[in-house]
Design a protein around this nucleic acid. Sequence first.
DNA 1: AAAAACGACAACCGCCGACAC
DNA 2: GGTGTCGGCGGTTGTCGTTTT
Length: 273
Amino acid sequence: MGRHSCCLKQKLRKGLWSPEEDEKLFNHIIRFGVGCWSSVPKLAGLQRCGKSCRLRWINYLRPDLKRGSFSQEEEDLIIGLHEVLGNRWSQIAAQLPGRTDNEIKNFWNSCLKKKLRQRGIDPTTHKPLNEIEREQEKLNSDNSVHENLPIKPVFNPFPTLEFQASADQTGANIILYDQFHSSFISAPGFCEYSNLMDVSGNYSYGSSSSNTSNWNCNIRSDMNNLVCNEALNWKSESKLEPIVGTQWPSLSQDPSSVACFDVPRGEFDADFL
DNA sequence: AAAAACGACAACCGCCGACAC
DNA sequence: GGTGTCGGCGGTTGTCGTTTT
């Protein structure tokens, strides 16, 4: 329990990642893909634990990250999904291509919660705040009368909807989506999310922003898609940003045609092909 | 101009489930 | 079935830039 064995070893760096470390990790994963995270630091020449490398890759280095501020559509989608899913950030992130669970979680905690409160909505239950207060007062008065009764949880992650509880991993999202969709599209004040929700066809990372299993399965074809669609620009602050509108040739057609990125800082090899 | 407060976001921590042995 | 390892997740903390006092 607790810290992984890799983290217990001496001389492991912590804290912010340097551009050099980013470069090493990025180059390693581009070349070899992700096999076993615990072996990545050693193979990449990093004094970090595998967990830290994994997090850095998922939240920061992955080439398909969108970055930048959230659009209004994304904001509405997050709020709607949070009402359905609660703090299941990885599941919420799965519906927002290019966004990570960490990013969404931070956005929620630092911004959206505040916005909802300003609109008079409780960010936990998504009910009007005055209604929550009334319920709380009622609960308090009930408790004072029935002090010996078991305490019921106040928070209900599914406040207005009932969901099928036993869906397999692949079916769960579909069921949730159908129920979420049918519940909200007819409700006043809610956006039509359907065009945003259906990303299963073009979101190559599967069910979660943190899910790297697809990388393990077919790193080459995934990188093919990613590199072609989102060329990399190594910015001075070491962040990667897609070059909007840039057309890249398909690697499967002509791998040698993509030999270099726009790399003003750091040097990324593209000869993993 | 300096200090304090605030906000955004990167990273860590602890826990859990899956899996292999 | 017990144990250890690993990946993944959500909560929390740390860091740093910006704004306010």
